[in-house]
């Protein structure tokens, strides 16, 4: 078993939880990355500036962890066509469905929200079906 990797993933997950919790404890906001991103562009900077600050932290963080050896992946797999289709689906799907892995998955499940539970099961399920179709059928 890759226990070291599992522990690293668990500790990384705890940091994600701590970041989401900080945003709730100090800003009173759900750490839903899709919602924060979409609203950052549509809210006035005076009211929505915290969104840009959060996103800036998200973008800068890997530059800091890189100093400790935790880096971003060397390459992003997939053709530009696939990534374009995937990006549109992720963007449209998360707005229609009011959330993604963070908003529904972490915050919603922690709030014991039935909507978030169903959304999480559906996007996990459709992602698993998609990967299986791509790898074993087409």
């Amino acid at each position: 078993m890759q226990t070291d990797l599992f522990l690293q993933a668990y500790l990384g997950g705890m940091l994600i939880g701590a970041g989401a919790l900080a945003l709730m404890l100090f800003n009173g906001r759900i750490a839903g990355i899709s919602g924060i991103t979409a609203s950052a562009f549509t809210t006035k900077i005076q009211e929505g500036g915290w969104r840009w600050a959060f996103l800036a932290g998200l973008i800068i963080a890997p530059l800091i962890t890189a100093m400790a050896g935790y880096t971003l992946p060397d390459r992003i797999p997939g053709s530009l066509l696939t990534l374009t289709a995937a990006g549109i689906l992720v963007g449209a799907g998360t707005r229609l469905g009011s959330g993604c892995t963070s908003g529904h998955g972490i915050c919603g499940l922690s709030r014991l929200s039935f909507r978030s539970l169903i959304a999480t099961l559906l996007f996990m399920g459709s992602a698993i079906v998609t990967v299986s179709l791509v790898r074993y059928v087409f």
Binding site: Q8, A9, Y10, L11, G12, G13, M14, L15, I16, G17, A18, G19, A20, A22, L23, F26, N27, A31, A53, F54, L55, A56, G57, L58, I59, I60, A61, P62, I64, T65, A66, Y70, T71, L72, S102
Partner: peptide, 12 residues
């Protein structure tokens, strides 16, 4: 919060 979240995503 964003720094913690992003560090967690990278380390995990």
């Amino acid at each position: 919060a964003g720094l913690l979240f992003g560090a967690g995503l990278t380390i995990s």
